[in-house]
């Protein structure tokens, strides 16, 4: 280690991974992973979400949830931005995931044509 700056540079590089254990407020994407969701392709949706987040280097918490009763509309994902309403998107394809992350998670604009519910 040659300088404090070099240490800080290394810290920035290795910090990304540790953010997974950060319990603070940040954007959250919740993937419906009940049996219905998995049958409708939620695993691929989850993988698409992870790939997109990694590609864009976003600090987003990705979690799963069980069946919420809207099995008809699976695969579903919820997007919850800090201080904003939780939005549920349904009937998703992998391409939709890209669109939701680009427009909603990054830019804060809800993709209205894919929304199936808003929660308080």
């Amino acid at each position: 280690m040659k300088s404090l700056a070099e240490l800080k540079e290394l810290r920035n590089k290795v910090q990304k991974e540790m953010k997974k254990r950060d319990q603070g407020t940040k954007a959250e994407i919740i993937v419906g992973m009940g049996t219905c969701g998995i049958a409708a392709g939620a695993r691929d949706i989850l993988k698409a979400v992870l790939a997109e987040i990694e590609k864009r280097d976003l600090d987003v918490r990705v979690t799963q949830t069980g069946c919420i009763g809207m099995c008809e509309k699976e695969p579903l994902i919820d997007v919850k931005l800090p201080g904003k309403k939780r939005i549920t998107y349904g009937n998703l394809s992998e391409a939709d995931v890209q669109k939701i992350i680009t427009e909603h998670v990054v830019n804060g604009n809800i993709v209205t044509d894919l929304v199936i519910a808003r929660h308080n």
Partner: peptide, 26 residues
Amino acid sequence: GKIDPEDIDEYIALGGYEAAGKVLTE
């Protein structure tokens, strides 16, 4: 209980060795 003790990167990610760096250089 928060970090892998065998991974120096995890210690550094949480600000490890910055105190030593500050002391030695400043």
